[in-house]
């Protein structure tokens, strides 16, 4: 999209959020809002500046992002590896399919009490839960990707009598790399969701804990500042990964659009 069309369509897109903020501010000023659950946009902005200035917001953000990133790498890595193996060896796929289908629907939040009991609170517990949550989706995506690799590439690798590692590194991985990146992109958004959920439910650190504490201390402005910040981070991660995907795999992105 060129700059001029962005400008032309941009005002339409921006109208609704701007109008909502203005209406909220006017309503808050007119009613002279004093509330334990609502805050005016100006108060929210002020609260945002103050939690930003004392460093608590940045520290919480770092905690959350660190857990999400490590969990994402571990979960997608292990899941993709398993998925590739299942995609390559039909016998492994047949054998494990039933077990995976039975384990997959367990909601990841149900594992919070188990991991909490085994590991206690802290970053480690959060990372384990995030990677467990990302494991199955990555397995499924990688398995499909490997099964859709051009069969002639596999024939070539058979003819060249490549060993397993050679076949993996030289033929399969390059062929499924775009799909793996897509899987990582989906996983990154999900990792943030799981991280915040774990923090809100149990783990006393990070953004989820911050927003929960702001609510319990009856500081609505701070609570909404956290909420908007969490949304902004999720949005930013999505935008950055989309940009990276377009940069690394332009052909694949075009195919996705089609």
């Amino acid at each position: 999209m060129s700059a001029s069309t962005l400008f032309k369509n941009g005002w339409r897109a921006a109208l609704l959020p701007v109008a909502l903020v203005v209406i909220a501010q006017v309503a808050a000023t007119v009613t002279q809002l004093e509330s334990d659950s609502l805050a005016s946009p100006l108060d929210i902005a002020r609260a945002f500046v103050s939690v930003m200035a004392d460093g608590s917001l940045l520290r919480a953000t770092l905690d959350t992002l660190k857990a999400a990133a490590i969990g994402c790498v571990v979960g997608v890595g292990a899941g993709s590896l398993l998925g590739i193996v299942l995609g390559l060896f039909r016998i492994a796929d047949d054998a494990l399919d039933l077990t995976i289908e039975l384990l997959r629907p367990i909601p990841v939040v149900a594992l919070i009490p188990v991991v909490m009991m085994l590991l206690g609170f802290g970053a480690k517990m959060e990372i384990v839960i995030i990677s467990l949550g990302l494991l199955w989706p990555s397995v499924v995506l990688a398995r499909v990707a490997v099964k859709e690799v051009e069969p002639r590439l596999m024939e070539v690798s058979n003819m060249l009598q490549l060993g397993f590692t050679d076949r993996l590194v030289k033929i399969v991985l390059p062929a499924v790399l775009p799909q793996l990146f897509m899987s990582l992109k989906l996983a990154a958004g999900y990792a943030l969701v799981v991280a915040v959920t774990v923090e809100i439910t149990a783990n006393p650190l990070g953004l989820g804990y911050g927003i929960m504490m702001a609510q319990q201390a009856l500081r609505p402005a701070e609570m909404f500042a956290y909420l908007i910040w969490i949304g902004a981070i999720g949005w930013l991660i999505g935008v950055l990964l989309n940009m990276a995907q377009r940069g690394f795999f332009p052909a694949f992105v075009k195919g996705e659009r089609r």
């Binding site: 659950s37 969701v193 959920t197 439910t201 956290y226 909420l227 949304g231 999720g234």
Partner: peptide, 26 residues
């Protein structure tokens, strides 16, 4: 669509669980 859809897309990445404290407050 032109007016409303972009705002909805902006709100989508917000984790649903982050709404829990707000819902508790209300």
């Amino acid at each position: 669509r032109a007016f409303i859809a972009p705002t909805l897309e902006l709100l989508r990445p917000l984790p649903a669980s982050a709404m829990i404290p707000i819902a508790i407050a209300f």
